[in-house]
Every structure is written in structure tokens, then in C-alpha cells.
Design a protein around this nucleic acid. Structure first.
Lengths: 217, 217
DNA sequence: GGTATTGGATACTTGAAGGTATGGAGTTGG
DNA sequence: CCAACTCCATACCTTCAAGTATCCAATACC
């Protein structure tokens, strides 16, 4: 929470600084208490501000929630794709993709929990549900494209159409995140990796050993 | 909603009849509006009763939610295991397990949504979280045992330890349920089956063709 | 530097939902 | 058939969080 000091020669934070503080605080508080159970006053307090500040930057609690999810989801996707790209560049392919996802899942359990609650919330609102559907399609397509690039780079045939593989990847990593959030001992670190290897079969195994002989340095 | 008539020679429902009505109504309303967003008055109204009736049968909203989840979860697990057993008796093994799960997922999307919201809610309460953790372990163990029986019956080696396979099964089916709930076109009916087949590899393929030659009429 | 503007603190209103108290109709036992 | 009891409807209370109105002080602009 280290302050995010106002710019030089300013005693007052800029609008966007305040907005940031509120979003960060919202992430923390929502993650601890849950979205529905969180009061805007708590969020404001966690940001070192008051409710007035929140309503000055966001029209309503709903708007704050939406803004937060939208922003954070974008970040997450970006980070994952970056991880994928690295995995492709001389990594061991899907096994590294698994490692990336597993790491995200561990370090960002809070986010997965928020996402789950948000999905549930969004479902009960017509417009929000449609928006989520579209957004989700974009995400799947983006992931599918990344997988295609990855498989081409590794000269490896995916055992499923990219779109479907993307769905599986999303479902598995979300599902495992939930299970490990409930009981972390239930999900060994390398489980996702092993499963993906099984799914992709010998194709990956071949590529893996090839890649290892190259990169194991 | 078809009334659940009072017993013969009675103008007033018994306690357990009322309890049932309330639980059923709660399932419906929670499913439509979400747990947090549902008012007890709505639940009561949906049951053709009033709030007083609810508080006469359940100590609090929380208790109602807990009772509902506990009961319904037990039903679901039972139903799934029954499906597994059938799948084992001369079926095509894991492929049929997948069919069972997929069917449940389609016909019980509401339940999966409730479950997701409940997980999120439960996480913020110490005792409830621990209880959920224990319960979840039991579920995993039960499934793991069922899988072992299944694999023994089919003389098929599971590609993962039963406990881990159980986790994967839970994660995949929950994850896919979420995705298909957001966008049903994203999850083809046979996707889970194909993935499980990939995971279990040739072992299943072998057994499948063997089983088909036996059971194909 | 003075004036308009903006951002956020304070104090208030409001509505809604969880929970309670009580009475009365239905039920059971003697 | 009457007394004790049970269960639910009605009416009420209380709490509490979202949202609003207003004012003060720090900025921006001329």
C-alpha cells in the first residue's frame, strides 16, 4: 500500500492516481470479503480515502466492479500470453504453458475467486451476460491463435481444434484453481503439466525431449 | 411446482412437506437471482409461503443456504456415481463417464452456478471453509474409489493416481460447466469425452473397441 | 493573483432486507 | 371436546450500506 505519492510539486493526487488507488484497494477488499459482502466504505478506507472519493470516480458500486474486472482480466490475459510466448521460444512447449498457468493459479488465487463470483453475478443480468459472452469468445480466440502459433513453431499437431483446446485450457486451469483454492494439497504443482502431456500424447513427448536436448543448455 | 398436496385427511402440510417446498423454492430462486441477491421473501413467495414459514424451518438465511447445498450436493454425487456404475457395467468405460458428466452439466447448469457462488461465499468464513475442505476430500475419495473399481472392472490402467484423476475430473467438469454456462456453443457435447479419451490414451481405445465388440448388441 | 473549476470529505437520507414478536388457525392427546 | 401445542401469517423493528447534497480546499486558467 506504499502511498503512490503525488507527483512532484503537488499536494494533491491526480484523478488517475486516485482511480488507481481505489481499484487496487477494491481488488484487495473484494478478494478478502467477496464482492457482494464488501462495503464501499471499506474499499475507500483501504485506499486511504472516503466513500465520496469513490463516488467521484465511479458512478456506482457496479461500475467499480465492472471496471476492476475488465482491467484485471486484460492484464491476466496479457501476462498469460507473454508466458506462452516464452514457453514457445525454445521452451518445452505445452509443458511450459502448463507451468505458466499453474504459477498464475497459485499466485493469483484471489483473482480466480473474484472471477468466479463475478461470473455468477454477471449471469443474472441480460446485458452483462451478453457482454461477458462476447468477451469470453475473444479470449478463447486469442488463446487459440497463440496455441496455433505455438504448435507451428514446434511443428507439433494439436490433438484438438485450437478453439476447443483453448476451452479445455480455460476450463482446466479455472477448475484446478478452484480446487486448489479449496484445498491446495489436492493439486500437485505438476498435475496440469502431466495432464496436458497426456492430452497431447507422444507428439509433445517427442518435442519435449528434442527441446530439452537443445535448451537444457 | 405441482402443489405437493397435504396428506389424506389433512388441511395443513406437515413440517417436512413445508421444508421441502422451501428448499425447492430456494433452489429455483437462488438459481435465477443468485444466492446473495435473493431475498428470503422471494423464496418464501415462490414456495407459496411467507417469511415466517422460512424462519420457522430454518434459523437464518445462512442455514437455509447450507441445508440446500448439503442436500443437493449429496444428490448430485449419488446420481453421478450411479451413472459411473452403469458406465462400467458393459459400457465403454471413461467415455461413458464423460457422457454422464456432460449430461449432468447440461441439465444442471443452475446447480453448477450455485456451487460456484457457494464456493466463493464459503471461502470467507473460517469454519465453513474447513467444512467444505473436508467434504471435498470425501467427494474426491469417493470418486477415486469409483474410478478404481471402474478401471479394475475394465482391466485398464489409469494414467494417473486415482485421487489425481478425480481432481482432474472435478476440475474439468466444473470448468466446462462454467464455460458452457457462459456460452453453450463453446462446449460441444462430445468434447469432454474426447479429452478423457486423449488423457487415458490407447488404453481406453483398446478397451473401448473390445467393449464395443461385446456390447454392440 | 484572482476567479472558475474540480475533487474529495462530511453529514445526511432512504430503502431494503434480515430478523423478531405475537396471535390465531389447525392438530394432537386425553 | 377441551386443553396444550405447533406452525405459519402478519406486523413490526433494526440495522446497515448505497447513494446524495453540500461545502471546502487545492488546482487550473486567464
Amino acid at each position: 500500500m506504499a502511498a503512490l505519492e503525488p507527483g512532484p510539486g503537488r499536494t494533491r493526487p491526480t484523478r488517475s492516481e486516485t482511480r488507481r488507488r481505489i481499484l487496487d484497494a477494491a481488488f484487495t477488499v473484494f478478494g478478502e470479503r467477496g464482492i457482494a459482502a464488501s462495503k464501499l466504505t471499506e474499499v475507500a478506507a483501504a485506499a486511504g480515502l472516503t466513500k465520496g472519493a469513490v463516488y467521484s470516480s465511479f458512478a456506482s458500486k457496479d461500475e467499480l466492479v465492472l471496471a476492476l474486472m475488465e482491467e484485471h482480466a486484460a492484464h491476466r490475459l496479457e501476462a498469460s500470453l507473454a508466458g506462452f510466448a516464452e514457453a514457445g521460444d525454445g521452451g518445452v512447449g505445452l509443458a511450459n504453458v502448463a507451468a505458466v498457468l499453474m504459477h498464475e493459479m497459485r499466485t493469483d488465487a484471489v483473482w480466480h475467486r473474484l472471477l468466479a463470483e463475478f461470473f455468477a453475478l454477471a449471469h443474472h443480468d441480460e446485458h452483462r451476460r451478453d457482454a461477458l459472452k462476447l468477451r469470453r469468445r475473444e479470449v478463447r480466440t486469442t488463446i487459440a491463435r497463440a496455441l496455433e502459433r505455438l504448435s507451428e513453431g514446434l511443428e507439433l499437431d494439436l490433438p484438438l481444434p485450437p478453439q476447443e483446446f483453448a476451452v479445455i485450457l480455460l476450463a482446466l486451469s479455472n477448475g484446478l484453481a478452484v480446487e486448489s483454492d479449496i484445498d491446495d494439497e489436492a493439486v500437485p504443482d505438476d498435475l496440469l503439466g502431466r495432464v496436458l502431456t497426456l492430452i497431447a500424447g507422444e507428439a509433445v513427448a517427442k518435442v519435449r525431449s528434442a527441446a530439452e536436448s537443445v535448451t537444457e543448455q
